[in-house]
Nucleic acid binder design. Structure first.
Length: 361
DNA sequence: CAACCGTGGCA
DNA sequence: TTGCCAAGGTT
């Protein structure tokens, strides 16, 4: 227990968080420099369900290529997705791109400063809108991300899983009640910093916490038990066949995936339900009766199912008929150019495994 | 309203 | 190695 904590005990919850943030919080994250609504927006979207350390290099590359919202709006969706490849949740990138175009059209390329206007943009919900406005302009709006939920679940000893709708409502009410009239930026940033640095999921540093003095979980000895884990369910195991089709120029066939569903809008190996469907496509789409060579399967786990990727390789001979491919959604891609395409992480892993000498990405 | 949407860090 | 889950939003 340090002296700051003792002194601060007389101050209200928000005041203690603000004081702590100013002394011990984070002030040098990339999106805290040259702070504006566009930069903070991009960071907030990238940080959704994604850790800070993972986001930083993506953010730097993204901002170097798309420094202003107009640059993003003017870019092709392929290029935007390529800058997102590897981050996951690709609807975030598609929504970000669509919203950037809206900002250019409807707001003269200036990110609006009203929460209502931000909420009308795809991909921005209540917490993200509040984060953008409070962290840039100091607007007093509460946020509720994973960090804040954990801090509140412990400080108020909320036992129910924070993902339950009922609990979310309760947490929003608490967030509103505790929102101070001033210092919104330091307060909201402080709650997030507290959650990530002190009120951590495991091994929380309660002796460094400015609000430990009236923390209910600490009082009840429940800190390690809260927040309650998500009720677990068994992930369904699925499998899919992937075609590695090479032409005589050593180019690989890629297909653009539909925008809905997993890996929406990304370029990928042609995917089929199973080997039979793959051979069917080889026969009818690609006029080839040769037997594709099965390669070792690759296991991948998503948030809601497990997928066994079953790759099949086929090299077309010099005499093979020139294939007619759908220009919009299919392409022959030289290995050297694969890095320019936003390939899903497990596909990239698969290609690296099979063609290690190429050293992709 | 619960399912869906990716990937990597970490214990 | 395995499982949990992170600066959530959309449908």
């Amino acid at each position: 227990m340090n002296s700051d904590t003792q002194l601060d005990f007389a101050v209200d919850f928000a005041g203690r968080v603000v004081n702590w943030q100013q002394q011990h919080g984070r002030h040098d994250l990339p999106w805290q420099k040259n702070r504006d609504r566009y930069r903070v927006w991009v960071s907030e979207i990238m940080l959704q369900q994604t850790q800070v350390g993972t986001v930083i290099p993506y953010f730097e590359r993204f901002m170097a290529r798309f420094p202003r919202v107009a640059d993003l709006a003017a870019a092709s969706s392929d290029e935007v997705l390529a800058h997102w490849a590897g981050l996951g949740y690709y609807a975030r990138a598609r929504n970000l791109h669509k919203a950037a175009k809206q900002v250019v059209q409807e707001w003269a390329a200036e990110m609006p400063a009203e929460q209502e206007a931000l909420l009308a943009l795809p991909g921005i919900g209540r917490s993200t809108a509040a984060a953008i406005l409070s962290l840039t302009d100091g607007v007093c709006l509460p946020i509720l991300d994973g960090n804040v939920k954990r801090v509140f679940a412990r400080h108020a000893a909320i036992a129910e899983w924070t993902g339950a709708l009922k609990t979310q409502k309760q947490l929003w009410a608490l967030a509103e009640a505790r929102m101070p009239a001033d210092d919104a930026r330091a307060y909201n940033q402080g709650l997030m910093d507290l959650g990530s640095q002190v009120c951590r999921r495991s091994k929380p540093l309660c002796e460094q916490c400015p609000v430990a003095g009236d923390c209910k979980a600490r009082e009840l000895g429940l800190t390690a038990q809260l927040p309650s884990p998500k009720p677990k369910k068994v992930l369904p195991q699925k499998s899919a066949a992937f075609l590695l089709l090479l032409n005589s120029d050593q180019e690989l066939l890629l297909q653009r995936r539909p925008s809905a569903g997993i890996w929406g809008g990304l370029w990928c190996l042609p995917q089929y339900d199973d080997k039979a469907e793959l051979k069917n496509a080889l026969r009818h789409q690609y006029q080839n009766l040769a037997e594709p060579q099965p390669l070792a399967p690759l296991q991948h786990v998503f948030s809601h199912y497990k997928l066994s990727l079953e790759p099949y390789q086929l090299s077309l001979g010099r005499n093979s008929k020139m294939l007619t491919i759908a220009e919009q959604n299919e392409r022959w891609v030289p290995f050297a150019a694969l890095a320019d395409y936003g390939l899903p992480a497990p596909i990239l892993k698969l290609l690296n495994r099979e063609f290690a000498a190429l050293d992709l990405a």
